[in-house]
């Protein structure tokens, strides 16, 4: 039987499959559906220091093979998370990844300090949310601003710090190198692509914020290309995501060098997607005589 365990920044995950931030709640929502033994980690809903009500107007819009969302980082705030959501998330079994967004460097720092004092396993620093004006995307586009926010947050925590990159970065490789240089222990990519839709009846943009984030199968080949480029460039582990829905998709990202993968939008089409992908990877490994993912990781590089 294949050994699905992977090491991510010094922590062992029981499988390489992670529920992606914003699509998996705090994990418990899926616990009646998914056998959590197959889930390596859950990345919780994006947190900000103070809670947020999120965006007004239309929040979800389907495209032929994707989903555009404008949630706007609705969340209860870091303190509320620590007190109310974290204990149950911890008890689920998978490793706990706290996804942290911010508006200013100071709110990122304070959020990271608070999370540092808890038993979360990872901090995933979201410098890439396209849905709030100062939701971090400002830091996610220019490598120099990313370098600054990551180095400042780095000083606030000794937890494994994974920086989540935006595909809207000016240059994804430079961005990745800047974050690695600033002290990131790992990188995850990609977040959603900036997109939009227009309503023919009203002749106006569908979203109150005009632009919103595209995810799902539509972005997968581009996400894969970016993960490949970043894995070629950096030495820290990379978590790949963007449109992954099947074990085959996940294996492509692992062959491109990803240490682990996250599943987002696919959970909506198949709420058991995380378990199905992990089981499918194990089956593929067994069929191909692969004992651990280390044997094949980055084979395409």
């Amino acid at each position: 039987m294949a050994d699905l365990r992977v090491d991510l920044c010094g922590k062992e995950l029981r499988t390489p499959v992670i529920g992606a931030s914003g699509t998996y709640g705090f994990g418990g929502e899926f616990s009646g559906i998914v056998d959590m033994n197959w889930v390596g980690a859950v990345s919780g809903k994006g947190l900000t220091l103070e809670g947020k009500a999120g965006n007004t107007g239309v929040r979800l819009y389907e495209t032929p093979s994707g989903l555009i969302n404008s949630i706007g980082l609705q969340n209860p705030g870091v303190r509320h998370f620590i007190e109310h959501e974290l204990p149950a998330m911890r008890a689920l079994g998978p490793a706990v990844m706290a996804n942290l967004g911010g508006s200013t460097i100071e709110t990122y720092e304070e959020g990271a300090r608070l999370l540092d004092a808890t038993d979360v396993d990872f901090i995933e620093l979201n410098i890439s949310c396209p849905n709030v004006k100062a939701g971090g995307i400002a830091y996610g586009v220019k490598a120099a601003s990313a370098h600054e926010v990551v180095s400042r947050v780095r000083k606030c925590t000794s937890k494994p710090l994974i920086v989540k990159l935006s595909p809207n970065a000016e240059n994804i490789t430079e961005m990745a190198l800047a974050c690695e240089d600033a002290g990131a222990d790992g990188l995850s990519l990609v977040n959603t692509f900036q997109a939009m839709a227009i309503d023919l009846e009203t002749r106006r943009p569908v979203f109150d914020n005009v632009f919103a984030g595209l995810s799902g199968p539509a972005i997968r080949p581009i996400a894969l290309r970016m993960v490949y480029q970043v894995c070629k460039a950096v030495n820290v582990p990379v978590v790949g995501l963007g449109g992954i829905a099947t074990a085959r998709d996940a294996l492509e990202f692992i062959l491109a060098g990803a240490a682990a993968v996250q599943i987002g939008t696919a959970n909506f089409a198949n709420p058991r997607a995380c378990e199905d992908v992990a089981r499918g990877i194990a089956a593929w490994m067994d069929a191909h005589g692969v004992k651990t993912l280390d044997e094949i990781r980055g084979a395409a590089l």
Binding site: G25, T56, V58, N69, I71, N267, P271
Partner: peptide, 15 residues
């Protein structure tokens, strides 16, 4: 409009 129906995505939020 719902994506998950489980309270996980916050896509169905209304005021």
């Amino acid at each position: 409009v719902m994506a998950c129906g489980l309270g996980a995505c916050l896509g169905c939020t209304c005021r």
